[in-house]
């Protein structure tokens, strides 16, 4: 493990792999969330499955937790190292001439997403943990949809979610293609496609989450 991240290039691979993993997770998460628009039953079924299946709970979830933790920890370590690599900063600099804002501010968009994660956990995961592990309630199969509706009735929360997804989009617009570059996948034939996919993913996925949030918010208004 330590050997794996001893050199800068290895750290980049680790970062990219954790990024890929999160990209995949996000897609899965969105798919389930989206079912909440299509059908409350399917959503409840899938949520319950994910929340109670032992394989998901005791094999995938720890992996996910580790992946998230690793990505964040690594992101912060890299940022600190990178800052240390320039002890005195330029007094006048024009970085926009040569790179995108997204690429330079992964730590900012990342931390915004992290803060969001805090809120998100507070909203869903911690109550979930309390319910399951403290109260020992495991078998209510249709609570998920209503909890969702309940949370998104709050306009402030909905706005925060939407804003966070905006940050996520910025993170992904650079992150997606960057991860391919990090693992050395770059050639004249496929790189344009990767970049296109990156833009589609970076816009579509956060937008998907936003749609879900807004759907339930506006849904709550008509109740």
């Amino acid at each position: 493990m330590v050997a794996l991240i001893r050199t800068s290039v290895a750290r980049k691979y680790a970062m990219a792999l954790s990024g890929f993993f999160l990209l995949f997770f996000l897609l899965q998460h969105l798919t389930i969330n989206f079912t909440s628009i299509l059908s409350a039953e399917t959503f409840n079924f899938l949520s319950h499955f994910m929340g109670t299946n032992p394989f998901v709970q005791y094999a995938l979830q720890p992996v996910l937790a580790f992946g998230v933790f690793f990505h964040i920890a690594m992101g912060i370590v890299l940022e600190l190292q990178n800052r240390a690599a320039r002890d005195l900063n330029y007094s006048y600099s024009n970085p926009a001439a040569s790179s995108t804002w997204m690429s330079r501010n992964m730590i900012i968009t990342g931390i915004a997403v992290l803060l969001f994660l805090g809120l998100h956990f507070y909203d869903f995961w911690f109550p979930e943990l309390k319910l399951k592990f403290i109260d020992g309630v495991w078998n209510i199969e249709d609570r998920y949809f209503s909890e969702l509706q309940h949370k998104f009735a709050d306009p402030i929360r909905t706005a925060l979610y939407v804003l966070s997804f905006g940050f996520l989009a910025l993170h992904l617009l650079h992150g997606f293609q960057s991860a391919f570059q990090s693992v050395g996948f770059r050639n004249n034939k496929y790189t344009p496609t990767v970049k296109l996919l990156a833009n589609i993913y970076g816009v579509a996925v956060p937008l998907g989450f936003i749609v879900v949030a807004l759907y339930h918010y506006f849904g709550s208004l008509t109740h």
């Binding site: 990178n82 240390a84 001439a97 690429s103 990090s182 693992v183 050395g184 996948f185």
Partner: peptide
């Protein structure tokens, strides 16, 4: 004590010899 690459691409744009990012990807491989 150089920093870690985060693929911003500024290097290649500012490089007087227009060395391509392809090289970084190749080195990673």
């Amino acid at each position: 004590g150089f920093g870690n690459c985060t693929n911003t691409g500024a290097c290649s744009i500012e490089c007087p010899k227009e060395i391509s990012l392809d090289n970084i990807a190749r080195m990673n491989r």
